[in-house]
Design a protein around this nucleic acid. Sequence first.
DNA 1: AGTTTGTTGATAATAACTATTAATTAAAAA
DNA 2: TTTTTAATTAATAGTTATTATCAACAAACT
Lengths: 146, 146
Amino acid sequence: MMDAKKVTALLRKKGFKVTPQRLAIYNALCNTKAHPNAEMLFNKLQPYYPTMSLATIYKTIDILREIGLIQVINVGEDSLRYDATVELHPHIRCTVCNRVDDIMDFDFSPAIKNVAEKTSYDLSGQQFYFYGVCPECQAKMSKKIS
Amino acid sequence: MMDAKKVTALLRKKGFKVTPQRLAIYNALCNTKAHPNAEMLFNKLQPYYPTMSLATIYKTIDILREIGLIQVINVGEDSLRYDATVELHPHIRCTVCNRVDDIMDFDFSPAIKNVAEKTSYDLSGQQFYFYGVCPECQAKMSKKIS
DNA sequence: AGTTTGTTGATAATAACTATTAATTAAAAA
DNA sequence: TTTTTAATTAATAGTTATTATCAACAAACT
């Protein structure tokens, strides 16, 4: 998460121009916990940038990822989601409503140690995805039953 | 991993017909550790079933998954891979050659406990993916440098 | 064997994403 | 500030994995 000034500086430093659309896309990602995909971002920005196309979303996302401002998450849907928190952390998806939440302050080290012992790979990263029913959907389900 | 007799019985029990294509696809998955995607399966079976189409592969995979004979794995490539080992286990992908290996006998319980404490989700499953350089690629890389 | 019903496989459709390109716009030099 | 230069936008078309359609066909029940 960076403020506009730092983002501007970073884009310039990496040789990319600074455009309102790019800042808006990054800003939109910073201001949500919903892990939007390209289409959700497009819809969110549509009122403010009615001429912006999906291609711009995709290209900007690619740049933001390249310069390390965002990470891509793949929870097994048919589209990718994006997250302005770049620190690696697991995600959990509700199998009922498909919302995706962060799991923060997760300690990867026991798992990594476990894997390092089992393989001869030179480890460089990992992605953990959990699945379950979110509290809201649990509440809805218990209502329906009663 | 089931033998042909059990697979036949299970397919019938679940209301699906037993066809040579279906048995062949399941068999191909049982006899590899390469975690093939649809195209790799298609190419592998092509010599023996030259008229079989990719659509049959996809449809059969869907059935096999539905009746619990295989699992789908999504290592962040543009295609899905399939595994006849249905017991949940992590996978590791080489970031150089893209091979995907199993990590067996991994203990998920510390991670699950960790997550159960942090969220109010009703957990139902998880997928862990690790990334790194496989031993073969490490060897190739050290050769090139020297 | 005949009949029913699900399956195959060729083809077309879909959907997410990427490449192309002309017109626009911003950055950098003067 | 103005000009030059190069990158960006956004419409469009292309690509690719996967899914749907449907007529011909094969499995399974009678």
